[in-house]
Protein backbone atom coordinates (compact mmCIF):
# COMPACT_ATOMS: atom_id res chain seq x y z
CA UNK A 1 0.00 0.00 0.00
CA UNK A 2 2.80 2.37 0.94
CA UNK A 3 4.55 1.47 -2.29
CA UNK A 4 1.44 2.22 -4.34
CA UNK A 5 1.01 5.53 -2.55
CA UNK A 6 4.63 6.35 -3.23
CA UNK A 7 4.20 5.49 -6.92
CA UNK A 8 1.02 7.51 -7.13
CA UNK A 9 2.82 10.50 -5.62
CA UNK A 10 5.58 10.06 -8.18
CA UNK A 11 2.97 10.04 -10.97
CA UNK A 12 1.33 13.10 -9.45
CA UNK A 13 4.67 14.87 -9.24
CA UNK A 14 5.41 14.07 -12.90
CA UNK A 15 1.97 15.35 -13.90
CA UNK A 16 2.49 18.55 -11.95
CA UNK A 17 5.86 19.04 -13.65
CA UNK A 18 4.12 18.55 -17.00
CA UNK A 19 1.27 20.91 -16.11
CA UNK A 20 3.78 23.55 -15.09
CA UNK A 21 5.56 23.09 -18.42
CA UNK A 22 2.34 24.13 -20.15
CA UNK A 23 1.34 26.83 -17.67
CA UNK A 24 -0.97 28.75 -20.00
CA UNK A 25 -2.92 25.57 -20.75
CA UNK A 26 -3.13 24.82 -17.02
CA UNK A 27 -4.47 28.30 -16.22
CA UNK A 28 -6.93 28.12 -19.13
CA UNK A 29 -8.26 24.77 -17.91
CA UNK A 30 -8.74 26.18 -14.41
CA UNK A 31 -10.50 29.26 -15.74
CA UNK A 32 -12.78 27.24 -18.06
CA UNK A 33 -13.69 24.86 -15.28
CA UNK A 34 -14.32 27.64 -12.75
CA UNK A 35 -16.33 29.60 -15.33
CA UNK A 36 -18.61 26.63 -15.99
CA UNK A 37 -19.07 26.13 -12.27
CA UNK A 38 -19.79 29.85 -11.69
CA UNK A 39 -22.51 29.70 -14.35
CA UNK A 40 -24.07 26.72 -12.58
CA UNK A 41 -23.99 28.49 -9.22
CA UNK A 42 -25.53 31.59 -10.78
CA UNK A 43 -28.26 29.39 -12.24
CA UNK A 44 -29.02 27.89 -8.82
CA UNK A 45 -29.10 31.37 -7.24
CA UNK A 46 -31.56 32.33 -9.96
CA UNK A 47 -33.73 29.34 -9.11
CA UNK A 48 -33.82 30.39 -5.46
CA UNK A 49 -35.13 33.83 -6.41
CA UNK A 50 -38.30 32.00 -7.56
CA UNK A 51 -38.64 29.38 -4.82
CA UNK A 52 -37.39 29.05 -1.22
CA UNK A 53 -37.09 25.26 -1.46
CA UNK A 54 -36.48 22.62 -4.13
CA UNK A 55 -39.49 20.38 -3.69
CA UNK A 56 -42.01 21.15 -1.00
CA UNK A 57 -40.95 19.76 2.40
CA UNK A 58 -37.73 18.23 1.14
CA UNK A 59 -35.50 20.40 3.31
CA UNK A 60 -33.43 21.52 0.32
CA UNK A 61 -33.60 25.22 1.01
CA UNK A 62 -30.88 27.54 -0.24
CA UNK A 63 -28.06 26.80 2.24
CA UNK A 64 -28.57 23.01 2.45
CA UNK A 65 -28.80 22.90 -1.33
CA UNK A 66 -25.51 24.77 -1.67
CA UNK A 67 -24.00 22.25 0.74
CA UNK A 68 -25.33 19.61 -1.66
CA UNK A 69 -23.76 21.40 -4.64
CA UNK A 70 -20.48 21.74 -2.71
CA UNK A 71 -20.48 18.02 -1.96
CA UNK A 72 -21.01 17.28 -5.66
CA UNK A 73 -18.18 19.63 -6.60
CA UNK A 74 -15.78 17.98 -4.16
CA UNK A 75 -16.61 14.42 -5.27
CA UNK A 76 -16.58 15.23 -8.96
CA UNK A 77 -13.35 17.17 -8.76
CA UNK A 78 -11.61 14.24 -7.06
CA UNK A 79 -12.80 11.87 -9.79
CA UNK A 80 -12.03 14.34 -12.57
CA UNK A 81 -8.57 15.00 -11.20
CA UNK A 82 -7.47 11.49 -10.28
CA UNK A 83 -9.24 9.05 -12.59
CA UNK A 84 -10.82 10.63 -15.65
CA UNK A 85 -7.60 11.70 -17.42
CA UNK A 86 -6.23 8.14 -17.26
CA UNK A 87 -9.55 6.60 -18.29
CA UNK A 88 -9.84 8.92 -21.26
CA UNK A 89 -6.29 8.11 -22.27
CA UNK A 90 -7.04 4.41 -22.14
CA UNK A 91 -9.17 4.71 -25.25
CA UNK A 92 -6.18 5.93 -27.21
CA UNK A 93 -3.86 3.44 -25.56
CA UNK A 94 -6.02 0.51 -26.63
CA UNK A 95 -6.34 1.80 -30.17
CA UNK A 96 -2.63 2.45 -30.63
CA UNK A 97 -1.26 -0.43 -28.55
CA UNK A 98 0.16 1.88 -25.87
CA UNK A 99 -1.48 -0.36 -23.30
CA UNK A 100 1.26 -2.92 -23.99
CA UNK A 101 3.76 -0.78 -22.11
CA UNK A 102 1.50 -0.70 -19.05
CA UNK A 103 0.90 -4.44 -18.99
CA UNK A 104 4.58 -5.33 -18.78
CA UNK A 105 5.16 -3.22 -15.68
CA UNK A 106 5.23 -4.98 -12.30
CA UNK A 107 2.25 -3.19 -10.86
CA UNK A 108 -1.46 -3.74 -10.76
CA UNK A 109 -2.69 -2.81 -14.25
CA UNK A 110 -5.90 -1.26 -12.93
CA UNK A 111 -3.95 0.99 -10.61
CA UNK A 112 -1.58 2.04 -13.38
CA UNK A 113 -4.31 2.58 -15.92
CA UNK A 114 -6.64 4.50 -13.66
CA UNK A 115 -4.18 6.66 -11.76
CA UNK A 116 -1.17 7.41 -13.90
CA UNK A 117 -2.46 10.83 -14.92
CA UNK A 118 -3.51 13.54 -12.52
CA UNK A 119 -5.30 16.65 -13.76
CA UNK A 120 -4.45 19.26 -11.16
CA UNK A 121 -6.64 21.88 -12.79
CA UNK A 122 -9.70 19.79 -11.86
CA UNK A 123 -8.94 20.38 -8.18
CA UNK A 124 -9.91 24.04 -8.71
CA UNK A 125 -13.62 23.13 -8.57
CA UNK A 126 -13.01 21.01 -5.50
CA UNK A 127 -11.40 23.93 -3.71
CA UNK A 128 -14.38 26.11 -4.56
CA UNK A 129 -16.59 23.26 -3.30
CA UNK A 130 -14.75 23.28 0.03
CA UNK A 131 -15.20 27.07 0.21
CA UNK A 132 -18.88 26.78 -0.60
CA UNK A 133 -19.32 24.10 2.06
CA UNK A 134 -17.54 26.30 4.60
CA UNK A 135 -19.97 29.10 3.70
CA UNK A 136 -23.07 26.89 3.81
CA UNK A 137 -22.48 24.89 7.02
CA UNK A 138 -22.74 27.80 9.52
CA UNK A 139 -25.93 28.90 7.73
CA UNK A 140 -27.69 25.51 7.86
CA UNK A 141 -30.99 25.30 9.82
CA UNK A 142 -29.25 22.96 12.27
CA UNK A 143 -25.66 22.39 13.32
CA UNK A 144 -24.36 19.11 11.82
CA UNK A 145 -24.22 16.29 14.34
CA UNK A 146 -20.66 15.18 15.30
CA UNK A 147 -21.47 11.72 13.88
CA UNK A 148 -22.47 13.37 10.62
CA UNK A 149 -19.15 15.23 10.53
CA UNK A 150 -17.32 11.91 11.02
CA UNK A 151 -19.44 10.14 8.41
CA UNK A 152 -19.12 12.85 5.79
CA UNK A 153 -15.54 12.09 4.64
CA UNK A 154 -16.34 8.35 4.62
CA UNK A 155 -19.37 8.96 2.42
CA UNK A 156 -17.38 11.27 0.17
CA UNK A 157 -14.95 8.38 -0.26
CA UNK A 158 -17.88 6.03 -1.01
CA UNK A 159 -19.20 8.46 -3.62
CA UNK A 160 -15.77 8.66 -5.22
CA UNK A 161 -15.55 4.84 -5.15
CA UNK A 162 -18.89 4.45 -6.93
CA UNK A 163 -17.96 6.96 -9.61
CA UNK A 164 -14.50 5.41 -9.96
CA UNK A 165 -16.11 2.02 -10.49
CA UNK A 166 -18.28 3.43 -13.25
CA UNK A 167 -15.25 5.03 -14.88
CA UNK A 168 -13.38 1.73 -14.78
CA UNK A 169 -16.28 -0.21 -16.27
CA UNK A 170 -16.70 2.33 -19.05
CA UNK A 171 -12.96 2.25 -19.69
CA UNK A 172 -13.01 -1.56 -19.72
CA UNK A 173 -15.56 -1.38 -22.52
CA UNK A 174 -12.84 0.34 -24.51
CA UNK A 175 -10.74 -2.82 -24.41
CA UNK A 176 -13.62 -4.79 -25.96
CA UNK A 177 -14.57 -2.15 -28.49
CA UNK A 178 -11.06 -1.11 -29.52
CA UNK A 179 -12.30 2.46 -29.73
CA UNK A 180 -14.68 4.23 -27.36
CA UNK A 181 -14.49 7.95 -27.89
CA UNK A 182 -17.88 8.55 -26.30
CA UNK A 183 -16.52 7.57 -22.89
CA UNK A 184 -16.57 11.10 -21.53
CA UNK A 185 -20.01 11.86 -23.01
CA UNK A 186 -21.49 8.72 -21.51
CA UNK A 187 -19.91 9.55 -18.19
CA UNK A 188 -21.42 13.04 -18.32
CA UNK A 189 -24.91 11.69 -19.08
CA UNK A 190 -24.71 9.20 -16.24
CA UNK A 191 -23.36 11.56 -13.61
CA UNK A 192 -25.93 14.19 -14.56
CA UNK A 193 -28.46 12.21 -12.52
CA UNK A 194 -26.32 12.58 -9.42
CA UNK A 195 -26.23 16.37 -9.54
CA UNK A 196 -29.67 16.94 -8.05
CA UNK A 197 -31.48 15.86 -4.89
CA UNK A 198 -33.14 12.47 -5.21
CA UNK A 199 -36.51 14.02 -4.32
CA UNK A 200 -36.87 15.53 -7.78
CA UNK A 201 -37.23 11.99 -9.17
CA UNK A 202 -40.86 11.30 -8.33
CA UNK A 203 -44.07 10.49 -10.15
CA UNK A 204 -44.70 7.81 -12.81
CA UNK A 205 -41.39 8.47 -14.59
CA UNK A 206 -39.28 9.73 -11.74
CA UNK A 207 -40.00 6.81 -9.39
CA UNK A 208 -38.62 4.04 -11.62
CA UNK A 209 -35.72 6.28 -12.62
CA UNK A 210 -34.92 6.88 -8.95
CA UNK A 211 -35.04 3.14 -8.25
CA UNK A 212 -32.79 2.43 -11.24
CA UNK A 213 -30.27 5.08 -10.22
CA UNK A 214 -30.28 3.92 -6.60
CA UNK A 215 -30.29 0.13 -6.76
CA UNK A 216 -28.95 -0.78 -10.22
CA UNK A 217 -26.51 2.02 -11.03
CA UNK A 218 -26.21 3.64 -7.59
CA UNK A 219 -25.43 7.05 -9.01
CA UNK A 220 -28.01 8.78 -6.84
CA UNK A 221 -26.22 7.70 -3.68
CA UNK A 222 -22.98 9.40 -4.70
CA UNK A 223 -23.80 12.99 -3.71
CA UNK A 224 -27.21 12.64 -2.10
CA UNK A 225 -26.17 10.57 0.89
CA UNK A 226 -23.13 12.57 2.06
CA UNK A 227 -24.93 15.84 1.35
CA UNK A 228 -28.02 14.70 3.28
CA UNK A 229 -25.87 13.57 6.22
CA UNK A 230 -24.11 16.93 6.51
CA UNK A 231 -26.97 19.26 5.53
CA UNK A 232 -30.05 17.63 7.04
CA UNK A 233 -30.89 16.12 10.44
CA UNK A 234 -29.74 12.50 10.98
CA UNK A 235 -32.64 10.03 10.96
CA UNK A 236 -33.06 6.28 11.10
CA UNK A 237 -33.70 6.24 7.37
CA UNK A 238 -30.45 8.18 6.96
CA UNK A 239 -28.63 5.37 8.77
CA UNK A 240 -30.00 2.85 6.27
CA UNK A 241 -28.87 5.06 3.41
CA UNK A 242 -25.39 5.34 4.88
CA UNK A 243 -25.13 1.55 5.23
CA UNK A 244 -26.51 1.12 1.71
CA UNK A 245 -23.99 3.57 0.31
CA UNK A 246 -21.06 1.84 2.00
CA UNK A 247 -22.33 -1.50 0.67
CA UNK A 248 -22.91 -0.06 -2.82
CA UNK A 249 -19.38 1.37 -2.89
CA UNK A 250 -17.86 -1.98 -1.93
CA UNK A 251 -20.01 -3.87 -4.44
CA UNK A 252 -19.26 -1.36 -7.20
CA UNK A 253 -15.52 -1.67 -6.59
CA UNK A 254 -15.74 -5.47 -6.66
CA UNK A 255 -17.84 -5.61 -9.80
CA UNK A 256 -15.69 -3.06 -11.61
CA UNK A 257 -12.58 -5.04 -10.71
CA UNK A 258 -14.11 -8.19 -12.16
CA UNK A 259 -15.23 -6.37 -15.33
CA UNK A 260 -11.79 -4.82 -15.77
CA UNK A 261 -9.90 -8.10 -15.36
CA UNK A 262 -12.31 -9.88 -17.70
CA UNK A 263 -11.78 -7.16 -20.31
CA UNK A 264 -8.01 -7.29 -19.89
CA UNK A 265 -7.96 -11.03 -20.54
CA UNK A 266 -9.53 -10.27 -23.95
CA UNK A 267 -6.97 -7.61 -24.82
CA UNK A 268 -5.51 -8.34 -28.24
CA UNK A 269 -3.09 -5.42 -28.60
CA UNK A 270 -2.72 -3.37 -31.75
CA UNK A 271 -0.56 -4.22 -34.69
CA UNK A 272 2.81 -2.48 -34.59
Amino acid sequence: MTRYLSIFLTFARACLVRDMTFRANFVLECVTSLGWMAMNLAFYLLVFTFTPEIGRGTGWTKEPFFAFVATGLIINSIVQALFMPSAEELTEMVRTGGLDGILVQPLDAQFLLSMHRVDFSAFANGLVGVGLLAWAIPRLPQVPHPVAILLYPLLIACGVAILYSLVIMLAAATIHLGRNQSLYDFWFYLTNFSRYPAEIYSGPWGGPLRALCTFVIPILLVVNVPARVIAQPLTGQGGMMVAGTVFAAGAALGISRWVFLAALSKYRSASS
Binding site: R3, S6, I7, T10, F11, A14, V17, R18, T21, F22, T96, G97, G98, D100, G101, V104, Q105, P106, L107, S272
Partner: peptide, 26 residues
Amino acid sequence: ALVMGQRNQLWWDLPAAESFRLHKEI
Protein backbone atom coordinates in the same frame (compact mmCIF):
# COMPACT_ATOMS: atom_id res chain seq x y z
CA ALA B 1 12.01 -5.70 -20.26
CA LEU B 2 10.38 -5.04 -23.60
CA VAL B 3 11.46 -2.30 -25.98
CA MET B 4 9.33 -1.65 -29.03
CA GLY B 5 10.95 0.47 -31.72
CA GLN B 6 7.60 1.77 -32.93
CA ARG B 7 6.17 2.63 -29.53
CA ASN B 8 7.21 5.32 -27.13
CA GLN B 9 7.21 4.22 -23.50
CA LEU B 10 8.76 7.34 -22.00
CA TRP B 11 6.54 10.20 -20.87
CA TRP B 12 6.20 12.31 -23.97
CA ASP B 13 6.04 15.77 -22.44
CA LEU B 14 8.59 15.20 -19.70
CA PRO B 15 12.38 14.85 -19.66
CA ALA B 16 13.57 11.25 -19.65
CA ALA B 17 14.98 11.82 -16.16
CA GLU B 18 11.39 12.00 -14.87
CA SER B 19 10.48 8.72 -16.58
CA PHE B 20 13.57 7.13 -15.04
CA ARG B 21 12.45 8.31 -11.62
CA LEU B 22 9.05 6.69 -12.16
CA HIS B 23 10.78 3.54 -13.32
CA LYS B 24 12.81 3.49 -10.14
CA GLU B 25 9.65 3.53 -8.04
CA ILE B 26 7.75 1.01 -10.15
